[in-house]
Design a protein around this nucleic acid. Structure first.
Lengths: 149, 149
DNA sequence: CAAGCACTTTACGTTAACGTAAACCTCGGC
DNA sequence: GCCGAGGTTTACGTTAACGTAAAGTGCTTG
């Protein structure tokens, strides 16, 4: 097998600790992106994996970050926007009040964004329903079998 | 006033007919985009206004199209995707069964997309809640007044 | 030890969706 | 008659988010 991939999750003791690590290729397949994408995200300051020699080693934390990043992308956020939130999230423990205020602002803004998207989705859903209804009507009017699939 | 803009909506009779037209600048302000954007959408086959001489004249239909286009954009659809749906919607009356089938396929796909986005939004919402909660905790721990806004 | 595979860096290429600039027309008002 | 506000075309520039190719490193497997 060509699977000498990641370190085992169990130490001699046997407790399934979170010491699981991932290679860049693993993460890539896991999220259906290319390694290039993951490296690019690192270059953009969204990931900061460790290095074993020259090779990148990703931990759970990195995996979660990547997941959040991709989710943000699906919602149409730019990498810059995503970074802004993710980095502040990480910088939280230092507890700079000013930064936290800024973070809350950003969060409120993102929330507004999501609200608008939700409304857009509802509207779009209706439009699609209309189009589909009309399409089926025309189809049945043609004497074709209405696809009940 | 520099408002010699669009033709009136009422003819001699007085019925508020839909004969309202818009200039490119009007639409631009209305939707907070630039004229360039609107011209670009036309070039991409999303709009097809009439011409009075050389000047573009937009009707209600065009306004609606533009609205749908921008909504689609907010949802992360590419102009190509939007065009695919919008154009088929227009081509519907001809009633080509094959095209209609294709349209239904596309609609189903868009619908799936929307579903995923909804789920993403729900998840993202939770994350934001978490982050905000933590931020407020840290803030209050600092002795600062928790902003009750 | 040679092959192969996964990783690395560097760097140039690409696509979508416009922005921006130049140079022109045209119309109503003073 | 000219000016300014809007409209027009043409064309090159820009940004984000990667793709792609080249050339090298390091392990392990036959």
């Amino acid at each position: 097998m060509t699977q000498r991939t990641a370190s085992a999750a169990t130490q001699s003791g046997g407790l399934p600790i979170q010491r699981r690590t991932y290679s860049i290729g693993e993460l890539a397949k896991m999220f259906e992106v290319t390694p290039r994408t993951i490296r690019f995200y690192e270059q953009e300051g969204l990931l900061a994996p460790e290095r074993r020699g020259q090779t990148r080693v990703y931990r759970e934390k990195d995996r979660v970050r990547l997941k959040l990043t991709l989710r943000g992308k699906r919602l149409g956020f730019s990498l810059a926007e995503i970074r802004e939130v993710v980095m502040m999230y990480d910088a939280m423990p230092d507890g700079n009040a000013r930064q936290l205020q800024r973070l809350l602002e950003i969060l409120a803004e993102k929330r507004d964004n999501l609200e608008r998207q939700l409304e857009d989705i509802r509207l779009m859903h209706r439009e699609l329903d209309d189009v589909e209804t009309r399409a089926r009507e025309v189809l049945s009017g043609l004497g074709a079998e209405p696809p009940k699939h």
